[in-house]
Computed example of a mutant assay.
Amino acid sequence: MPINPKQMIYANLAEVAQALGHAHRLELLEQIAQGPRSVEELAVLAELTVANASRHLQVLRRARLVETDKQGKRVFYRLAGECEVIAMLKALGRVAERNVAEVREVIDDYFGARDELDAISREALLTRLEEGGVTLLDVRPEHEFALGHLPGAINVPLTELEQRFDELPQDLEIVAYCRGPYCVMSFDAVAALRARGYRIRRLEDGFPEWKAAGLSVETRH
C-alpha cells in the first residue's frame, strides 16, 4: 500500500501536539526558553523530581521540540527551532484565550486585577527606547537575567523588589517584563510599583518572544 504523505505529516504533527499536552511540559518549555538549562535546574524550577522532569524532557525531545548539549557530565536542554517553538506556544495561548472560558476567566480575574492598562507592544517599546526616557525592568531571577536580557535592562527580581525601590527612577516611565505573557512576576511588579506612584507599564510579551523576534539581547557571564 503506498504511503499517504498527508497522513504521514499529520501523524508527526499529532506527536508534536501530544508532547504539548501536559502542563508540566509547557512549563518546562517556558523555562528552557529563557536559556539552556540542565535537568537538575529544570526539576527545581518546575517543582518536579529529577526523574519526572527527565521523563517529560524525553517526550519533548522525541517530538523534536528540544535538543541537548553535553557539558562534561551534565546535559543541557535548549529549544529546537527557537523562533518556531515560541511562536507555536504563543499561538496556542491565543487560541485558548479565545475558545476556553476558564482561560478567559483567569486572564480577567487574576491578570486584569493587577494591571488594568494595556501592555506595551514590542514595536511601541522600540520607539520609546529610541526616543529615550524609559527604563527597562527585568523582574526575573538573577540567573535568568544572566542568560539573556533586553539591552540596558535593570535586574530587580520580584522577590527583592520591596527592598530595592530606591534603585528605580521615579521621574521616568518604567517598562517591566519577565518570562512570557502568562508570567505573573511582571503583573505583580506593575501592581506593587504603581501603588507607590511609579509610572510603569508591562511589556505584552517576555524575554523569549523578544529574542525570537530577532531583536538585540545582552548576556552577563
Rank of each mutant, 00 (worst) to 15 (best):
M185E: 12
A146R: 15
L92E: 11
L28E: 02
L92H: 10
A192M: 08
R201Y: 09
G112D: 09
Q18I: 14
L57K: 02
A46M: 03
G180R: 02
L215R: 12
D69G: 10
E47P: 00
V66G: 02
A53F: 03
L137M: 08
P141Y: 02
V217E: 03
L92V: 13
F111T: 02
I3Q: 13
F111P: 02
D69Y: 13
R98F: 09
L26N: 07
V106P: 03
A43G: 07
S186K: 00
A51G: 08
A153P: 03
S216N: 10
E218V: 00
A213N: 08
L161R: 05
G112Q: 10
G180E: 00
E173H: 13
E142R: 11
E116G: 12
G21P: 02
G152D: 10
Q58M: 11
L48E: 07
E102L: 12
E160T: 09
E84A: 15
A19W: 04
E40R: 07
R64W: 05
I120F: 04
V103L: 09
P5F: 09
R140Q: 05
D171W: 03
Y10I: 14
R202C: 01
L48V: 09
A189N: 02
C83E: 15
T68S: 13
H56I: 05
V217G: 05
T127C: 06
S186D: 00
Q7N: 09
A43W: 04
K73S: 12
G214H: 10
G148K: 01
L20I: 07
A189I: 02
E116M: 13
L136C: 06
E162W: 07
D166R: 12
L129M: 09
H221I: 15
V156M: 03
E40I: 06
I200F: 05
F111Q: 06
K73F: 06
T219D: 07
E167L: 13
E102N: 06
H22I: 06
E102R: 12
Q71I: 14
L92G: 15
A51R: 07
G132Q: 09
R37S: 04
